[in-house]
Amino acid sequence: MTASLRDPRMGQGMDTRSWDVHAGPIYCLATGVLDGKTVITSGGADSTVRVWDLATCQPLGQPYTGHRGEVVAVTLADLDGRLVVVSAGEDGSVHVRNLATGQPVGAPFTCGERIGCLAVSAG
């Protein structure tokens, strides 16, 4: 699936950037700042979460795997001073990964039912 981004600062005649992101539909996006770069995380029908440098439209690292179904929700959060990506999906699991390293933070949570949305609160 190809994604397109528009720079709202450009007004009319906006700059549009497109790149191939997922094998299938993209269901969710979240943005954040990692090491001074604005990044986008995306989740899709291919059961992966991907991280992109917004300025270059280049992937940062390998896709995150582990879901056994479509990823339908992603969000970013601060966890003990580190930025994490939280993803949920059709398989009823919630995965947490360190955004800087891509490594899992603990074991996935499971509930046995499709999870369609996420919210994170600083606490």
Rank of each mutant, 00 (worst) to 15 (best):
Met1Leu: 12
Ser4Leu: 11
Leu5Asp: 03
Leu5Ile: 09
Arg6Trp: 12
Asp7Ser: 09
Pro8Ser: 10
Arg9Asn: 14
Gln12Gly: 14
Met14Cys: 12
Met14Glu: 15
Thr16Phe: 09
Thr16Asn: 12
Trp19Asp: 07
His22Tyr: 05
Ala23Gly: 15
Gly24Arg: 06
Gly24Lys: 08
Pro25Tyr: 13
Ile26Lys: 00
Ile26Pro: 01
Tyr27Asn: 15
Ala30Tyr: 02
Thr31Lys: 11
Asp35Leu: 11
Gly36Lys: 08
Thr41Ile: 04
Gly43Lys: 00
Gly44Thr: 01
Ser47Cys: 14
Ser47Val: 09
Arg50Cys: 08
Cys57Glu: 06
Leu60Ala: 01
Leu60Gly: 02
Leu60His: 03
Gly61His: 01
Gly61Thr: 07
Gln62Asn: 09
Tyr64Cys: 08
Tyr64Met: 12
Thr65Gln: 14
Thr65Ala: 13
Gly66Ser: 13
Gly66Cys: 13
His67Gly: 03
Val71Tyr: 01
Thr75Gln: 04
Gly81His: 04
Arg82Val: 11
Leu83Asn: 02
Leu83Trp: 03
Glu90Phe: 09
Asp91Lys: 03
His95Ile: 11
Val96Arg: 03
Arg97Val: 11
Leu99Phe: 11
Gly102Val: 10
Gln103Asp: 15
Val105Gln: 13
Val105Asp: 13
Gly106Leu: 06
Pro108Tyr: 04
Pro108Glu: 06
Thr110Trp: 03
Thr110Ile: 10
Gly112Met: 02
Arg114Met: 07
Ile115Thr: 01
Cys117His: 10
Cys117Trp: 10
Ala119Arg: 09
Ala119Ile: 09
Val120Trp: 04
Gly123Cys: 13
